Amino acid sequence: MIKSELIHKLAEENPHLYAKDIERVVNTVFGEIADALCHGDRVELRGFGAFSVKHREARTGRNPRTGEAVEIEEKWTPFFKAGKEMRERLNKEPLDLDTAGAARRSA
């Protein structure tokens, strides 16, 4: 699901709200999550999961085409850990990955 699909679904489920207002709320929520991560904070959404940042040390990597050694700078990367309820829900309901992948590829 992409952000526009999320906004559309929320608009369908809440016909009393304007789509513009829903889009503003979704953008605000995502913006606040991003801002918190940029400040090094952890964001936890109970039942869904937690977003945090992890530090990656500088290292020497390889160019996959040439095999040449390449220096990779240190960096901070976003990290998501699914919550207990999310993991239980994923493991309780069977995933039909063939259908989901086919739908994604045809779009």
Rank of each mutant, 00 (worst) to 15 (best):
G47H: 03
G47Y: 05
G49K: 07
G49I: 14
F51E: 10
F51T: 07
S52P: 07
S52A: 14
V53E: 08
V53Y: 08
V53N: 11
H55D: 12
H55A: 15
A58H: 05
R59Q: 08
R59K: 13
T60D: 04
T60K: 03
G61V: 02
G61T: 04
G61H: 02
R62G: 00
N63W: 06
P64N: 08
R65D: 02
E68G: 00
A69W: 02
A69L: 15
A69R: 12
E71S: 15
I72C: 02
I72T: 01
E74F: 03
W76F: 08
P78N: 08
P78H: 13
P78Q: 07
F79E: 08
F80N: 05
F80A: 03
F80T: 10
A82L: 10
A82M: 07
A82N: 01
A82S: 15
G83N: 07
G83K: 04
G83R: 00
G83S: 10
G83F: 08
E85N: 10
E85F: 00
E88L: 06
R89E: 15
R89I: 02
L90Q: 02
N91W: 01
E93P: 00
E93C: 08
E93V: 14
E93W: 08
E93S: 05
P94K: 15
L95C: 09
L95N: 14
D96Q: 07
L97Q: 12
L97E: 15
L97I: 14
D98I: 10
D98G: 12
